[in-house]
């Protein structure tokens, strides 16, 4: 051992690398940090911040200025679209968080491999289908004398012909957002120690009581974050209203699209968009204040 060790200890040259600056800091200097973040900042400012600011300014300065907003609120179509969109989005986020949450919780606690695989498949399949295909599939499902009507017929119920109604749009939105909520809530539930639930039940709580008094309070911030995100995203749904709601569906996306491409009225479209964005950003801001940045960030599936 000795001789081998001696030969290894022969002096080697020190590192040949030289840095121009004599002062070295293990923490990345801020100017480097800024340089590295420059591409992302360029994209964010050029294609997120600037467009949103320009949109807001345009909505106030082109056309009739503030009158663009009056026009949106005073037209029956505008009011109906706004109310339907906001209400549908609220309903969708409530349903998505509830059903997605249940699904995620069952994936979390299920011990059968096969059942878990099926549950995961249910969460992933809508992602695999993609936006347009998903809605296409639901169009087929809901169409007159389609599979849903046939199923109802088998059960001895009357056909419902939901296609091209606001209900159909809501179904399509829920279908997209349930897996999204399930995905983000699975992460939340994964962070909760299952033995806490056993402990609560060991102390005599019923299963329902254990869940509502132990699990729900712990998961609540994540649920709030997930709900806020689902709501904000739902406001902007475009493909679903267009395909499932038909030409007359009172949704903001269709309203905006009509004003740009049918009436060539960009000022009113921009005002309507700003209203939609304001609702979304207010909700997200509220969620941010309630649960903090980290949780909101983790809730984005």
């Amino acid at each position: 051992m000795g001789p081998a060790g001696r030969s290894v200890t022969a002096n080697l040259p020190a590192s040949p690398r030289r840095e121009a600056d004599g002062r070295w800091s293990a923490i990345l200097p801020n100017r480097w940090a800024l340089l590295l973040v420059a591409p992302l900042l360029a994209v964010l400012f050029g294609f997120v911040v600037y467009p949103l600011v320009k949109l807001t300014i345009d909505s106030l300065t082109t056309g009739n200025g503030i009158g663009n907003y009056e026009a949106v609120f005073q037209s029956a179509a505008g009011r109906r679209a706004l109310i339907t969109t906001v209400l549908a989005s609220m309903l969708v986020s409530a349903l998505a968080v509830t059903l997605g949450g249940l699904l995620a919780w069952h994936i979390r606690i299920c011990r059968h491999r096969a059942v878990r695989a099926v549950l995961w498949l249910a969460v992933l399949a809508p992602f695999w289908m993609g936006t347009v295909v998903k809605n296409y599939a639901i169009v087929i499902l809901l169409s007159a004398e389609g599979p849903l009507d046939k199923l109802l017929e088998l059960l001895g119920l009357a056909p419902v012909s939901l296609l091209y109604t606001s209900t159909a749009v809501a179904i399509g939105m829920v279908y997209t957002m349930v897996p999204y909520a399930a995905f983000s809530l699975y992460g939340v539930f994964l962070g909760i120690d299952e033995s806490l639930l056993d402990a609560a039940r060991g102390l005599g709580a019923s299963r329902a009581r254990a869940i509502t008094s132990v699990m729900l309070p712990l998961a609540m911030p994540g649920i709030v974050a997930s709900g806020a995100l689902v709501f904000a995203i739902s406001l902007g749904f475009y493909v679903t209203p267009v395909l499932l709601g038909g030409a007359q569906a009172p949704f903001m996306a269709s309203f905006i699209q009509d004003y740009i491409f049918t009436f060539f009225d960009y000022p009113i479209a921009s005002a309507a968009s700003v209203i939609l964005l304001a609702v979304a950003l207010l909700t997200l801001g509220l969620a941010l204040a309630l649960v903090g940045r980290g949780r909101l960030q983790r809730a984005v599936a």
Binding site: L28, P29, L229, I233, A280, R293
Partner: peptide
């Protein structure tokens, strides 16, 4: 790094997929 506001980038960078897409498309 310890650049101030670096944490905001984490959420700010996600803006594109959390705002209503049809309004964003108009912008």
């Amino acid at each position: 790094s310890r650049l101030p506001w670096r944490g905001v980038l984490q959420v700010g960078g996600l803006t594109g997929i959390i705002i209503p897409i049809s309004a964003y498309a108009v912008a």
